[in-house]
């Protein structure tokens, strides 16, 4: 499996990173180097092996249903690039 400029462009959009047209081939080359490296895994027989879901053998701890957080809208927006009346503001979204 290898990637070309078109695939890189598509991935760039999925990841929402603007990629300049002139860099696509170079990026494809770099990604292919990495993908080539990870393709060593094809040598490993993984039949019957469960994929790891957690590195520690435990199950999920649950939390009590209590209100213990929130109530600080000013702190939520204090780092926002743009906000008004404790709303975040973004370029208009067309649905």
């Amino acid at each position: 499996m290898s990637v070309d400029a078109n695939i890189v462009k598509r991935i760039g959009h999925l990841a929402r990173i603007k990629l300049e047209q002139e860099n696509l081939d170079g990026l494809a080359g770099e990604l292919n180097t990495i993908l080539g490296f990870v393709e060593q895994l094809d040598e490993v027989d993984v039949s019957g092996v469960e994929p790891m879901t957690s590195v520690i053998p435990a199950s999920l701890r649950v939390r009590k249903d209590e209100i213990t957080d929130g109530g600080y809208a000013d702190k939520i927006v204090s780092n926002a690039p743009l906000s008004e009346d404790n709303f975040f503001m973004v370029p208009k979204v067309v649905e």
Binding site: I67, D69, A73, I76, N86
Partner: peptide
């Protein structure tokens, strides 16, 4: 129907002022 959110301790109450029922986790 629950008091607090699925993965954080902030309130699920409807109709409060903007971003007031929001924890750092929710944001």
């Amino acid at each position: 129907t629950s008091e607090s959110k699925l993965f954080s301790g902030s309130s699920t109450k409807f109709g409060n002022s903007p971003n007031s029922n929001v924890s750092f986790v929710d944001a």
